[in-house]
Design a protein around this nucleic acid. Structure first.
Lengths: 162, 162
DNA sequence: CGCTCTCGGTTGTAGAGTACAACCGGATTG
DNA sequence: CAATCCGGTTGTACTCTACAACCGAGAGCG
């Protein structure tokens, strides 16, 4: 890896006089992930006023899973079922998803992307991906792969408890 | 680096038949950062009911800068000045910060951490850091350093436009 | 069968975070 | 001084979210 180090950023707090380098790294990860998170919503909203970050991830999950229940979404994203219910209602109103009654159990409604929903999702995904690609332009492929791997590892470690 | 790769996670969408590996990595980064962001607020709130993610970052900036104006905070975090105004009001009400009139310019009020504010901030930082440390336990130091570096690089690239 | 319990989902209510627009009062400049 | 700029506050409205109460459909049991 190369001159990433002291690129100013928010690196201000010279911490750890005694702590090992690993602690400094953890601190940086903490700070930078936090900074990213704080901006994500607003920037997502700015990029695609039509599809909030939550709606986007919900649609994404629907696509990936090929249809699932509201409860599954709530579990997966650690959201209250009422929240999901309203989000889903909005997405349905917008014509991006549809509900199909489960013939086997009349309590459940299986959610599916509509054609329009799939289209919008693909479009937003592409535009988001493009934005990321731009920001990551110039990174050596090796670094990209490693970065992706780290994020996967980090998120999967935290999937449960957060 | 080691077996981070196909750790299942959300890596589901086997994309890129034709796309280079770099694209796959970008896609993963995109997905995982998004997932992280979506959870951050709620998990932060769960961890420290007393200090929201925004309040936390605001206090952090105050500490780092050693006092600044509301406008600076708004600029730095791409927030509306009204939002910052209310956050600041709340933080002041809670006794975590104080306003000092700039003797040179009676329009500006320089914000400073109070003793209590510094204490709470340190406490929350420590607890957050501990949570991160736990999640990152077992990572080789080399990976931690690289991960931190990547995040710094990523965030500094996006600092302006987002 | 009928009663209770569980479960998926909706609705009522409330609070945080945010933006935009209008405004206020001190500072700057012509 | 008048016009303007600038830091900050207030009014308003909307979204996201949680919690709690509720509804209707299965499931288990006497």
């Amino acid at each position: 890896m190369q001159a990433v180090e002291a690129s100013g950023a928010t690196a201000g707090t010279e911490r750890d006089a005694a702590a090992p380098a690993a602690d400094a790294a953890v601190e940086t990860i903490h700070r930078e992930l936090t900074a990213f998170a704080r901006r994500a919503r607003a920037s997502a909203a700015r990029m695609h006023p039509e599809l909030s970050l939550v709606s986007y991830t919900l649609l994404g999950h629907l696509e990936q899973s090929g249809g699932c229940r509201s409860t599954d979404l709530a579990d997966h994203y650690a959201l209250d079922k009422s929240t999901v219910s309203r989000q889903v209602a909005a997405l349905e109103r917008a014509g991006l998803i549809e509900r199909r009654l489960d013939p086997g159990d009349h309590r459940v409604q299986v959610l599916h992307l509509t054609e329009a929903g799939a289209r919008i999702l693909a479009q937003v995904t592409e535009s988001r991906r493009e934005a990321f690609r731009e920001r990551l332009a110039g990174w050596p492929e090796e670094d990209l792969r490693r970065f992706a791997g780290y994020l996967l590892r980090y998120n999967s470690a935290t999937a449960g408890d957060r």
